[in-house]
């Protein structure tokens, strides 16, 4: 109960990073968006639809990065029982789910003109969809118990199990995909032109620093939620007679 009473070194580092991450993200979005939308040339094959890549690829990257962070947090929580780790995992899950959804939506919007359909069982999109389900399952279980601490623990186990499983899922989907759809979607002919690298890296940087900044904000928020819960519980324990009266 008292574990949250002291500011952790972790939080101090996170708070120190925050202004840099937030500032960097703002600057990179301000430079990156005009480059991505205006100054970078259209692809000679895909035309202007290539611009969707500049949100799709970063969103997909963030969806994986956040899962990685979540898996590390979960493992750290299980190994060292450090309460900050579960706060971190809780803060991350919705962020990951949102970027996974964004990667799916932008991917399918890119697919419509390129493949002629909004949804193709492409290996990457399929993996991304399964990742979304895993994120949603994680959020669901973290929130499925009367005792939030039990939710944290169960979610941590699921986070680790998921991180072991994700590469296997990706590998199996990849295998399945090559057998079922030999030629339609292969991105051959998509030569990476140098001109897409600048907007791509700007946006990757912007998304990454945004995620770090939002993570710190959510860490603070989740930490406060725990403190509030503890405060409420200690209030209850200070008034046992009141509590007993209510239970009867």
């Amino acid at each position: 109960m008292h574990r949250f009473a002291n500011p952790t070194t972790f939080m101090r580092i996170a708070n120190a990073i925050f202004p840099w991450a937030a500032g960097l993200s703002a600057v990179l979005f301000l430079i990156g968006l005009p480059v991505a939308l205006v100054t970078s040339p259209a692809d000679y094959q895909q035309g202007d639809s290539v611009r969707l890549f500049y949100v799709h690829v970063p969103a997909a990257w963030i969806s994986l990065m956040v899962y990685g962070m979540m898996a590390v947090s979960s493992a750290a929580f299980l190994i060292w029982r450090h309460p900050m780790a579960s706060v971190s995992a809780r803060a991350l899950a919705p962020v990951g789910a949102i970027f996974t959804a964004l990667a799916l939506v932008t991917g399918s919007l890119w697919g419509r003109p390129m493949w002629g359909t909004y949804w193709v069982w492409d290996a990457r999109l399929t993996s991304e969809l399964l990742l979304l389900f895993i994120y949603l399952g994680y959020i669901a279980i973290a929130d499925a118990f009367e005792d939030p601490e039990r939710g944290d623990k169960a979610a941590a186990v699921l986070g680790v199990v998921g991180s072991v499983n994700l590469p296997i899922i990706h590998f199996s989907v990849e295998w399945w995909n090559t057998l079922h759809q030999p030629s339609i979607i292969k991105m051959t002919g998509f030569t990476v032109d140098g001109s897409i690298l600048l907007p791509l890296f700007l946006m990757l940087g912007a998304f990454t620093s945004y995620t770090i900044a939002i993570w710190v904000l959510r860490l603070r928020s989740e930490l406060l939620a725990v403190k509030l819960r503890n405060a409420r519980m200690s209030e209850v324990s200070l008034a046992p007679s009141l509590n007993r009266g209510a239970a009867e």
Partner: peptide, 8 residues
């Protein structure tokens, strides 16, 4: 957007 407005 070069005809891709509905997607971009």
């Amino acid at each position: 957007m070069g005809g891709y407005a509905a997607f971009v």
